[in-house]
Design a protein around this nucleic acid. Structure first.
Length: 393
DNA sequence: TCTGGGGTCCTAGGACCC
DNA sequence: TCTGGGGTCCTAGGACCC
């Protein structure tokens, strides 16, 4: 039993890690007491954060039953010198393998593991199916990457009248359609819902009725947006838990971190009232970068421009762009970017190629290079580009 | 240990305009 | 001769997310 189920302002954590079917018979922990004033069902908005469990690895396991029970590691090939782990299933995690770990290290930890190179297109089609299902329950929806999303389920939850049932319905529908499990967090704000979905993984449901007691003892970096760098600075001034951040003097925070820290403090205080965006998601940039197996000379980067462009044009589809950037990472890992905004919106390949070449020619450095990439941004839909052209003519 | 790749958002300084 | 202030765009770098 965890400390939250002992708390008077109870947050429900409902889990069954082994048997998905048994979910339907789940009971709320007997010690739970839900005070009406703290019942999430009575809040003006109910946000669910749905996070697929070890998504890439789970898709591979579903497609190949022979993988069941084995350590599965998705990412670069272990034969490659450079590359990292993208996703490791729970069996692989027992060996100490985790996301972002160098693949060479993962191989040392678990040489008999099943290493699979990630196939983004395969995962993308499953992701689309999941997003479609989620939209059935949502009045508003914000995907976050390929395998998770926030959904506003206020109406659905209130109609159902039971938050646990509502969460189970979402999980069931995804499972029946894709064979994959996910973890769900329910709260009155998106940030708390996100922390909640992470609280009981995999295949869990966490419902937060009282944000304050749920958040108080957690490390500040549980808040999405507070990473390693910010955490270190916060720790130095005596802030280690979300409760500490909530209590800290606002003006001294403003001094050290600037305006944006106030939003984080409001989240820590359980005051985040922002709702999900009504606008449809539109991509803001398309990029492609390559890390070379062996460092190369600056002059050799030109050879890769064509190859990179193919990816970018594919990703752009009907979007026009205005800004072209290049990124160069040297062998010592220091990185520079150079960018240029063109006079007019463009949609052709040649404009990127010539802009990227020209930016590259302006880099004056003799160090060898481990990564080269191109990005286009300031994207505009074809329809809007036409309007823009009409105004000019 | 040796650090991918695809994104988003923020900050800060400078240019430029009114 | 000295020089405000607001707004917007551009560029570079960095933090952070999955």
């Amino acid at each position: 039993m965890n400390h939250f189920t002992n708390n008077h302002f109870i947050n429900q954590q409902l889990s069954d890690k082994n048997n998905f079917e048994a979910k339907n018979n789940l009971e709320i922990n007997n010690t739970s007491k839900i005070y009406e004033k703290d019942n999430l069902l009575n809040f003006h908005q109910i946000i669910a954060h749905v996070d697929m469990d070890c998504f890439f690895a789970a898709v591979e396991e579903r497609n190949n039953l022979k993988l069941k029970g084995k350590p599965v590691i998705i990412g670069a090939s272990p034969r490659q010198k450079r590359g990292v782990v993208s996703t490791a299933n729970y069996v692989a995690r027992k060996y100490g393998i985790h996301s972002a770990m160098p693949i060479s290290q993962a191989y040392k930890l678990c040489p008999h593991g099943i290493f699979i190179q990630s196939d983004y297109h395969k995962y993308k089609s499953t992701s689309q199916k999941i997003m479609q299902i989620l939209s059935l329950f949502a009045t508003r929806m914000e995907p976050l990457g390929i395998d998770e999303a926030f959904i506003d389920i206020t109406s659905f939850a209130k109609e159902t009248g039971d938050l646990k049932k509502a969460a189970l319905k979402i999980k069931d529908t995804i499972y029946c359609s894709t064979g994959l499990t996910c973890s769900v967090g329910l709260a009155s704000s998106r940030y708390v819902a996100k922390i909640a979905s992470d609280y009981d993984k995999p295949n869990g449901i966490t419902i937060v009725h009282d944000q304050k007691s749920f958040l108080e003892q957690m490390s500040v970096n549980k808040i999405c947006g507070i990473g390693k760098a910010t955490k270190e600075v916060l720790n130095k001034i005596g802030i280690s838990t979300i409760g500490d951040l909530a209590k800290h003097d606002r003006f001294s925070l403003l001094d050290k971190f600037g305006e944006h820290i106030i939003h984080y403090q409001e989240i820590a205080r359980g005051n985040d009232k922002t709702s999900l965006s009504e606008e449809e998601y539109q991509i803001k940039s398309v990029s492609k970068e390559i890390t070379f197996q062996e460092d190369i000379f600056l002059d050799d980067c030109y050879e890769y421009i064509d190859q990179i462009m193919k990816y970018i044009m594919e990703g752009l589809g009907k979007l026009s762009y205005k800004t072209v950037s290049i990124k160069v990472r040297f062998s010592d890992f220091s990185t520079i970017t150079r960018s240029i905004s063109l006079d007019f919106l463009k949609f052709d390949e040649m404009s990127v190629i010539s802009a990227a070449s020209s930016l590259l020619s302006q880099v004056n450095d003799t160090r060898k290079i481990r990564l080269f990439g191109i990005k286009v941004s300031n994207l505009v839909l074809e329809k809007e580009r036409q309007q823009y052209l009409d105004e000019f003519i």
